[in-house]
Nucleic acid binder design. Structure first.
Lengths: 205, 205
DNA sequence: TTCGTGATGTTATCGCTGTTAACATTGTTA
DNA sequence: TAACAATGTTAACAGCGATAACATCACGAA
C-alpha cells in the first residue's frame, strides 16, 4: 500500500504554471468570454491554489491583457499572410480576413476591443500589440496609395475609414445587430467595395 | 429631545425607489462605466437595503439593460432631430451626430454596444430600442435612395456600410485606438465623404 | 557537500459582490 | 376593519479578487 512507485506525491512546484495558466485562460475566454474568467476557478482547474497565480500575474486584469496581446498577435499574423500584389484585392482581403477573425473568435475579439476591461495606456504591451495589427492595415493602404490606386489624401484619413468600417462591421455582426441571414462574405465585400469606390483614383484604371 | 416634529422617522416605504434607482444608476454608469455599478452600493446611496432593489429589477443585468434602453432612446432622439431636406447633408449629419453621441457618452455607449454584458435576444425591450435607433439611419438612407441620390443597391448593404462605419469610428475613437490629435469632426466628415462618394449615383448631380 | 537565498507554492483571512429566504411594515381595497 | 398585495427589512450563502504570513523547493556559492 505504498504509493512510492505508482503515483508521484504531487510535486510542490507546478512546473510551468505561468504558461499553462495562460493557455487555459485563453481557452476559457474563447469559449465563454472574459467575464467567465475567475482566478479561483482557474487555479482549481490547474490543481493549484489561487494565490499561486499572483506569482505570475499582477492581477486578473493583467492576465486578461496578456490574452488580448496574443489575440492581437494572431490577428496580425492572419493579416500578414495576405497576398499584397494587387492593391485593390489586398485591401478587400484585409477587410475580409479582419471580419473573419472577429467571427471566428468573437469572445477574444470583444476582449481585445472591449475598451471597458482593458483601457488604453495601462498595459504598454497591449497597446503595442494593437498597434502592430493596425500597422498591417496602414501599410497596405500606404502601398495602394503609393502605386496610385487610391486618391491622394491623408493616410490617416483612409486608414481611419477602412479600420472603422471593418471594425464596425465585425462588432455589429458578432453582437447580432446586423441580420446575419444574408450571406456574410458578400455583405462584407460589398461594404468594402463601396468605400473603395469612393476612395480610388478615378484618373487611372 | 423628541424628534416628532423636526425630522420624520424615515418612512418605511421609499416613495419612488424604482425611478430613483434608475436615475442614480444611470449617473454612475455615465461617470464610471457599468462595471462600477454595485447593487449594494447603489442601495446604500439611496438609503435602502440591497434586497429592496430586487423588488424593482430582476437582477443587476436587467437594471443595466434598462439603462441601455434609455441610452438608445436618447440616441434615437438626437438622430430624429436632424434636418433631412438635403439627402447628402442628412446622411453626413446622421454620422456626425452618431459619433458625437458616442464621444459625449462613452460609458453609456459601451454599455449599449458592449455585447458581452447584454447579449442580444435576452432583453426584448433592449433589442427593440436598438432597432429603433437603427431605424432612423435606415429611413434616412432609404429616402436618399428614393430621391436618386444613392446608387441603386440593396438597402441592407448601404445601411450595413453606413452603420458599420460610424459605429466603428465611434468605438475606435472612444477607446483611444485612433489618434484624437487631428480634429475630430473633420475626420468623421472626411470618412463619411469617402463612403458617400463610393455610393452616390454618379449619373446625376 | 552543505548552506542560504530567492522563486514559487501553501493556508488563513479580509472585504466586497449578487442573490435568496424569511420576516416586517405599509397602502389599498372589499 | 380585515385581508391582501406591495414594498420594505435583516440574516445568510456562495463566490469573488486580493493580501499577509508561512512552507517548500531549486540552485548557486562557500
Amino acid at each position: 500500500m505504498n504509493e512510492t512507485n505508482t503515483t508521484r506525491p504531487a510535486p510542490y512546484h507546478h512546473g510551468d504554471l505561468r504558461q499553462e495558466a495562460h493557455q487555459q485562460a485563453l481557452e476559457i475566454v474563447r469559449e465563454h468570454g472574459d467575464t467567465a474568467i475567475s482566478l479561483r476557478a482557474l487555479a482549481k482547474q490547474l490543481g493549484v491554489s489561487a494565490p499561486a497565480l499572483y506569482r505570475h500575474f499582477i492581477d486578473r486584469e493583467s492576465l486578461l491583457a496578456e490574452l488580448a496581446v496574443t489575440g492581437f498577435e494572431a490577428l496580425r499574423e492572419r493579416l500578414l499572410a495576405i497576398d499584397s500584389s494587387n492593391p485593390r484585392q489586398a485591401l478587400i482581403d484585409i477587410g475580409l480576413v479582419y471580419v473573419s477573425f472577429a467571427q471566428d473568435e468573437p469572445n477574444l475579439y470583444r476582449l481585445m476591443f472591449g475598451g471597458r476591461v482593458l483601457p488604453r495606456g495601462v498595459h504598454p504591451r497591449l497597446d503595442a500589440a494593437g498597434k502592430g495589427a493596425f500597422q498591417v492595415l496602414e501599410d497596405t493602404i500606404a502601398r495602394a496609395q503609393h502605386v496610385g490606386y487610391l486618391k491622394p489624401m491623408p493616410l490617416a484619413l483612409m486608414t481611419a475609414a477602412a479600420w472603422s468600417l471593418v471594425h464596425g462591421l465585425s462588432q455589429l455582426t458578432i453582437d447580432g445587430h446586423l441580420p446575419v441571414a444574408e450571406a456574410e462574405p458578400q455583405l462584407a465585400e460589398g461594404v468594402l467595395t463601396l468605400l473603395l469606390d469612393g476612395s480610388r483614383n478615378s484618373a487611372q484604371q
